[in-house]
Amino acid sequence: MTQTGRGSLTQHNLQINFLELYRNDDRIFSEISFDLSEGQHLLISGANGTGKTSLLRVICGLTIPTGGTILWNQLATNNIDCRYHEHLAYLGHKNALIPELTARENLEYTFEGNRSINRTSSVLEAFGLNKYLDQYAEKLSNGQIRKVALSRILLSEKTLWILDEPVANLDTSGTQFLLAEMQAHLDQGGMLITTSNLNDQTLKPNSEINLDKA
């Protein structure tokens, strides 16, 4: 058994074997296998409705797959000793912002990880969110909501980022900043899984799964 605690020298690793998902009688995807180590980026591409989001939700553990296994550091993620969720940050289509709270309260409403104040202000600065921090989330525009949600991921200090179409709704400068941040995360040994429509701008991935062919 390998030592997998935080700060140990062992690298984190995510291994997916023959994942498949059926809903009622329809096949969403099947025979998905890949291996992701630190510093690697996996891109899941495909047209609308090919099951990109479903695949991400299965990888996160939100949806139970029909078949296949997900291993985090050689341990199945449904194993009680597996500390998968400690290292995972997920952002789907829903931005998980509570409309009745302000942007600041939404950002504070995460209870894991402690980031420096400098880092927080630089991220908010780059996204141009400083002016809007005390507005209720329901008053923000879609792009701003997305930026708040993304800031939460960027500030989370988690190893594995799973982002569903991260650049959707973002303006040019926001996109540039996000891509740079994602690159920096990979350089620090982070792991990244993203989806994109084929025409989206994104980082060059280490590996790619195209659901159109499957």
Partner: peptide, 16 residues
Amino acid sequence: RPDVLNGSLEQLTLNS
């Protein structure tokens, strides 16, 4: 219901 609609409930299931 509101937390499911805005996605914050699924985030609650994803922490440790």
